[in-house]
Design a protein around this nucleic acid. Structure first.
Lengths: 333, 333
DNA sequence: TTGTATGCGTTATCAG
DNA sequence: CTGATAACGCATACAA
């Protein structure tokens, strides 16, 4: 592949001149046309990596997510693209596949001058291996999940309130026996959503039944065991609150398989939105996260940090969720 | 950020020794422990980019897709990850947002020694800007769509047959008036799926009604105009074949809004699978693509090329689709 | 085994 | 405005 050097040779100028031309400085018109010619004939392609080595700027940002198939993640990324694409930033997406070890590797990979900044959704809220975040280090903005003892910018959804409003709605429809399929205890959002559930029960003076609280994985098969446990309880709940997308979908599938009608035999309120949820009969009640907006705000904070502006650090943005209430939660009176 | 040089200084050895140590060569044990110490204290992070500049190997591959929110794309990527992750390759995902210009930029970005190889789903089948593919250039494997006059390895689904089988199923259920919402004429898969539709009609001696063939975008809002056109025809079709995921979902939504019951008032067969399709009432008939398998095979071919094995070039793999037939297509007798 | 020197593609600094 | 050259972080050929 042709380099700036080949171009210089063919155009009979120095590499410096070619570099300056490429970076928009004014050079003698004659040289300019000759360089343009040379670029054409050699089919020269500029190498941003080599530049990055020199300038410590690559005009690219890394995005680290748990899984590429996660609908919430892709919606967030669309928001990030909306901000960064117009500024000609490249976006590199890596997935940690929910593994701490992979997260470490990928962060390392991204941090090494490969990108100017990182937007990351951490695997757990217990650990995040990032060192120098301010100053000369690569800026990092967390999304969706906070990490304990980790001073970083972050944009998250208000999970406590999101869950609270959902459970409150269920209570207001007359339910007292409300099960929750919660995420892993070490994940921030799972902790918060469970807290919202507990607060709602507390505020409405409903006693907490530990049997109704089951933890599961956030991953693809999440909630399958949990649902079975919940449904085979002697005094089973009349409503189930599922706390992320895969859990919600799996629970729906299992109910279907068992011949349980959603909203009749057992009520259901889920988390995260896909248009198909509202096409089902009945449509599914869900907590809707401002996923795209999370991406947008994270990208904006990151740009600020890349630009060297470290005011209000660490800046933690908490965005409101909304609730879609449907007949998937039965009104009991 | 600490470099190999700093480590060398602190460990009182030369950079060469550190480099060799990092690359697994045997060095004097005493030096090894000193280097390990230095790496610890400096929190040294290895920079794979700089190495890539030197070695032309980065142990990373680029994946270019039209949209990150496309369910088909993410499924393909999961297949790619399955192959490449165990080999410690990093995967960089870029999206072209269906824009030729962005595709050009991203391919350029990836090709410049940033990655060892590229797996790409081209925006159109008319153009793909890649130059030296064999030999010293960055290997490229196309997925899902072929490009005219472009000799490249590719893994695609058998779209002609996929569409053919779907339309055949519709015909066998007694339908004669079958509408198709086809993708953009310049996209390979759209051309092939339309061809399958036409062949099926031809084989079953059903006359082609041009009014029943409508082209639309593959993007998010795809099929909305098309559906309105189709449904307001004086002699409207009894069944509609929608040829990708967004078109299918949009059509379903519009039918719901218009109070048309799927499988009763109008029959529907879609393309691409999501578990939720089978939870609807009735479940939706769809052509299922081997999306993950496409990713797996593309990654395997790419690895072969990266390894310098250019046998059977260009290698074009065509994978079979399957069909889920449900009551969303009404049996007319 | 180890250290030294050179090169990868680009930018930045300097003197011309 | 231009050319020459050092520097970025690392790998490697070569000499020691």
């Amino acid at each position: 592949m042709a380099t700036i050097k080949d171009v210089a040779k063919l155009a009979s100028v120095s590499v410096g001149t070619v570099s300056r031309f490429l970076n928009g400085y004014t050079i003698k018109e004659e040289n300019q046309t000759r360089i343009e010619q040379a670029i054409q004939t050699l089919d020269f392609k500029f190498n941003p990596i080599a530049r990055g080595l020199r300038t410590n700027k690559t005009y690219s940002v890394g995005v680290l997510i748990p899984r590429i198939s996660d609908i919430f993640c892709t919606q967030v990324i669309e928001g990030i693209e909306e901000v960064l694409e117009p500024l000609n930033y490249s976006i590199l997406i890596c997935s940690s596949n929910d593994k701490l070890e992979l997260q470490r590797e990928k962060i390392n990979f991204l941090q090494n001058k490969c990108v100017d900044g990182i937007i990351a959704m951490p695997v757990t809220s217990a650990e995040f291996n990032v060192d120098k975040v301010t100053g000369n280090g690569t800026p990092v903005v967390l999304i969706d999940r906070l990490v304990k003892d980790c001073e970083l910018d972050a944009v998250v959804a208000d999970n406590v309130n999101g869950a609270y409003l959902a459970v409150e709605m269920i209570i207001n429809k007359g339910h007292q026996k409300i099960g929750i399929i919660a995420g892993p205890q070490e994940i921030y959002t799972a902790q918060e959503r469970l807290m919202g559930y507990l607060r709602a029960l507390n505020d409405y003076h409903i006693e907490v039944n530990e049997d109704y609280i089951i933890h599961t994985q956030y991953k693809k098969d999440g909630g399958i065991d949990a649902f079975h446990q919940l449904i085979s309880l002697p005094d089973r709940p009349t409503a189930i609150f599922t706390t992320n997308y895969p859990i919600t979908v799996n629970t729906m599938r299992l109910m279907l398989e068992k011949g349980l009608q959603i909203g009749q035999d057992v009520s259901l309120c889920g988390y995260d939105q896909t248009e198909l949820f509202q096409m089902l009969n009945p449509p599914i009640s869900v907590v809707v996260q401002p996923s795209k907006e999370i991406g947008i705000q994270a990208a904006e904070i990151l740009l600020k940090r890349i630009g060297g502006d470290f005011s209000r650090f660490p800046q933690i943005q908490r965005l409101k969720t909304s609730l879609i209430a449907t007949d998937s939660v039965k009104t009991l009176f």
